[in-house]
Design a protein around this nucleic acid. Structure first.
Lengths: 106, 106
DNA sequence: TCCATAGTACGACGGTTGTCGAAGTTTGAC
DNA sequence: GTCAAACTTCGACAACCGTCGTACTATGGA
C-alpha cells in the first residue's frame, strides 16, 4: 500500500551556513559527501564505505538531507543518494569545492 | 618579570580541515573571524562585538588560534588579534572566502 | 505466503562543548 | 607602591550529539 516514502527535501535557498557547517563538521558525513562527489552515479545508503551501524548511518543521511546537501529517493528497498551539487553551488559558491579540495587525498 | 606571554601559534600546514570546521561551526567564532576579515587593523579581544563573558571569549580565541585562523600578540595589557588570511588561504584555498561570502550580510 | 533485504524509529548512554563566575596574573598609570 | 584594566585559568554545570541495539516497516523474490 504505497505509503509516501518520499522524504522532505528543503529548498537549498532556505539553508543557513550554520546548518551546512553542523552537517559537515562530522567526518563520517564528510566522507559520505566525498564519495558522492567522486561518483558519477547515485549510491544506495548501504553501499557507502562508512564504519558505523545502520541506525547511525540513517541519522547521518537525514542530517545531510536536511542541510540541503543530498537528495534521496527509493528504488525498491534501496534508498539512493545524490549530491545536490549544482543547487548547492548556487547558494554557497565555492564552498563545496574548497572543502573537497582540502581533503583531496582522504 | 616578563613571563613569556607569547602564545603558541601552529604552523597552518599542520592544521586539519576537521580542526577548522570545529572552530568555525560556532557562530560566535565565525562572528570574530568576520569582524577580523572586514577590519584593516588588528582588534583587541575586548573590542569585539560578541555577546559572551570574558572567560568564554578567551576560550573562543584560543580555539581560533589553535585552528590556525588567528594570530595573537600583546600590546600592553591588550591582546591583539589578526586574521592569518594569506597563510590560511595557501593551505585551504577558497575556503575562507566562500565562508565569508555565505554570510556576507551577517 | 513466507522470508530475506534495506532502511527507519526510538530510547538510552557517554563524551564533548559552550557557558559562566570567581580567583589569579600581568601591565601601565597615578 | 597602589590600583584599575585586560585577560587567563580553573572548576562546574547543562545541553547537545554521535553512537548503538532493538524493534518496526516496506519491498521484492522464492
Amino acid at each position: 500500500m504505497s505509503t509516501d516514502r518520499a522524504p522532505e527535501h528543503p529548498d537549498v535557498r532556505t539553508i543557513t551556513l550554520q546548518q551546512v557547517l553542523e552537517a559537515l563538521v562530522d567526518p563520517v558525513r564528510r566522507s559520505i559527501v566525498r564519495q558522492l562527489f567522486r561518483s558519477a552515479a547515485d549510491i544506495a545508503c548501504g553501499a557507502f564505505d562508512i564504519a558505523v551501524s545502520k541506525s547511525t548511518a540513517t541519522h547521518h543521511f537525514r542530517v545531510l538531507r536536511e542541510a540541503g546537501l543530498i537528495r534521496q529517493h527509493y528504488v525498491g528497498t534501496s534508498r539512493m543518494n545524490t549530491l545536490r551539487r549544482d543547487e548547492f553551488d548556487e547558494v554557497f559558491p565555492g564552498l563545496l569545492d574548497a572543502l573537497i579540495a582540502a581533503e583531496r587525498d582522504a
